[in-house]
Amino acid sequence: MTRAGRVEFENDFGETVVYVRHPNGEGLVSPRAFVDTSARIARTAYVEEGARVGARTSVGAGSWIDQGVTVGEDVVIGTGVHVGRGSTIRDGAHVGAGSRLGTGVRIGRGARVVPDSILADDTVVRGHRVRRGDDFDVAA
């Protein structure tokens, strides 16, 4: 059922699940999630309840941000990515297309996850930071 940007589905347990279309990209967002208005959520992407998506972040087509996930600012999540429950992706990170992140995965600031990666539960991917006045990335 669709009403003015509201979409309802029946899940595998026979429960009705409600999503609203995000104004930037028209992706499906749980009313119990927070997605910054400047983030772009592709039309066929989902953001589940309890998730947070920061400013200027892009979530690609067919991607799924699971429950309780935190995605920082200026993050790029490619197409067909699943970010598992309770995972955290810090500012400026990039998750390549087709990747699968387990539960509780932590991706550091500015880190890069190559396409089609499979990260087990609780994996930590260290990020990078740029020192002021320096053009080089330095491991955090």
Rank of each mutant, 00 (worst) to 15 (best):
F9M: 12
V17A: 01
G102D: 01
R3G: 01
G27N: 05
G60F: 07
F9E: 11
F9T: 08
G14S: 02
A55D: 11
G108F: 04
D135Y: 06
L28N: 01
P31F: 13
T16P: 00
S38A: 00
R85G: 09
R32E: 15
R21T: 06
A97V: 12
I89P: 08
G5F: 05
S58G: 07
V7W: 02
M1F: 07
E48L: 05
R132T: 06
R32H: 15
R6I: 14
R52W: 10
R56V: 07
D12P: 01
F136Y: 09
R90G: 04
R6C: 13
E8Q: 06
V95G: 05
D116K: 14
G102T: 00
G80V: 12
G72M: 07
G104L: 04
P31G: 15
I41W: 02
L101D: 06
G60S: 05
A139E: 14
R32Y: 15
V75R: 10
G92T: 13
R3F: 05
R6H: 14
A39N: 08
L28K: 00
L101F: 09
R21K: 11
T37H: 14
T103D: 04
G84E: 00
H22M: 07
G127T: 05
E26I: 03
A93D: 12
Y46Q: 13
S63D: 11
I41R: 02
G86R: 03
D74V: 12
A140I: 10
A61E: 12
P31W: 13
E26T: 08
G86V: 10
E49K: 10
S30A: 10
R131E: 14
G27Q: 06
V29N: 04
A97I: 12
I65H: 09
R112G: 03
A39M: 05
A111E: 01
S63W: 10
E26G: 04
V7K: 02
I41F: 03
D134C: 00
F34Q: 15
E10A: 15
G80N: 15
R100K: 06
F13H: 03
R129Q: 15
V71T: 11
V138K: 10
V138D: 11
D74N: 15
V95Q: 02
V35T: 04
R43A: 11
R3V: 04
E48F: 05
T57P: 02
N24C: 03
T79E: 15
G54F: 03
I107E: 06
L28S: 01
D135Q: 06
F34L: 15
R106M: 10
A33Y: 02
A33W: 03
G5V: 09
P31Y: 12
H128G: 07
G62H: 04
A97Q: 12
A139Q: 11
R126W: 03
E73M: 13
T123D: 00
V124F: 10
G102V: 00
